[in-house]
Design a protein around this nucleic acid. Structure first.
Length: 268
DNA sequence: CCAGACGTTGTT
DNA sequence: GTCTGG
DNA sequence: CCAGACGTTGTT
DNA sequence: GTCTGG
């Protein structure tokens, strides 16, 4: 999954339209935008998130650092950028944060998922990977997550987080059709404005939260998705000087792919 | 009990 | 073509 | 995921 | 560090 967040836009929405002005811990990030990708070899990217404890936007590291000795934690962290919500309480890396109520919310403008058209069909040498921009009608939502602190090599306490996923709905399953190993198609949980307060309310225990996820995840009918130009570089997004390069993706445009006519007739 | 795992996804 | 390593 | 390798022997 | 599997 690729994730995108534009903080200046996000903060404007929060303050003016939603009347939910979270404090912003580092004002330097107010004007930043973020485009980040998750995989097992790229973690620690700093993204804006709100913890239930502080109720303020701050930069935290994407991919949860579990409470284990550093040599082990670093390895496990390769796979903690997401957390399967249905199984979270059974996982050593996540049950601690859950029991301590370390929930967070990650504001976002859109995410990308890739649709694969096999080379068999295109007749090409490689599969065709078409990125879809996915968001809600408001163009602004938030992803529920868990967070955990750790002490980095400089001895500083750093906060890290994971984004929760659930079984993928129809839209996600259709777009995200890459061949998989044995498991189901997943989607990152997206909450519209009306579920943010509940997620950041400490009266809800984990079982309540599982229900919140099922009930609050943005429905397919509320999703807006369309194919877009292929972003050729996403890696290293957290390098500050690359910020300008990514700004161009803020208005990432819908484009036509003739190859999609068979799989997405009339829906785009 | 001890040994071994600890995680998720599948463009970046 | 298929597996491994990053 | 993609990029890059695509191997053996002797020894643990 | 803590849990799971054998």
């Amino acid at each position: 999954m690729c994730y995108y967040s534009s903080m200046d836009y996000n903060a404007r929405v929060l303050e003016q339209e939603l009347r939910k002005p979270w404090k912003i811990k580092q004002d330097t990030m107010y004007q930043q935008s973020f485009l980040a990708a998750a995989n097992g070899y790229n973690y620690g990217v700093k993204l804006p998130a709100v913890t239930i404890q502080d109720q303020a936007i701050e930069l935290m590291e994407w991919s949860l650092y579990p409470g284990m000795p550093p040599d082990i934690a670093k390895k496990v962290r390769n796979g903690t950028y997401n957390c399967r919500s249905e199984e979270a309480t059974q996982k050593k890396s996540f049950k601690g944060p859950i029991n301590k109520g370390q929930f967070c919310l990650i504001p976002s403008s859109w995410i990308l998922e890739f649709h694969t058209i096999p080379k068999k069909i295109t007749g090409d040498k490689k599969d065709l990977k078409i990125p879809f921009r996915i968001t809600n009608k408001e163009g602004f939502f938030a992803i529920p997550g868990l967070w955990n602190p750790y002490k980095n090599e400089q001895g500083e306490i750093v906060r890290s987080f994971t984004m929760l996923t659930k079984h993928g709905g129809e839209v996600f399953s259709k777009i995200h059709n890459a061949p998989r190993f044995s498991r189901d198609c997943r989607q990152v949980v997206m909450f519209g404005r009306e579920y943010w307060d509940a997620w950041l309310d400490d009266k809800f225990l984990w079982d309540d939260r599982l229900e919140l996820i099922e009930e609050g995840v943005i429905k397919d009918e509320e999703l807006v998705f369309h194919p877009v130009r292929h972003p050729n570089k996403i890696r290293n997004i957290n390098i500050p000087e690359m910020k300008e390069d990514y700004r161009e993706y803020e208005g990432i445009d819908k484009i036509q792919y003739p190859e999609l006519l068979d799989s997405f007739p009339n829906t785009l």
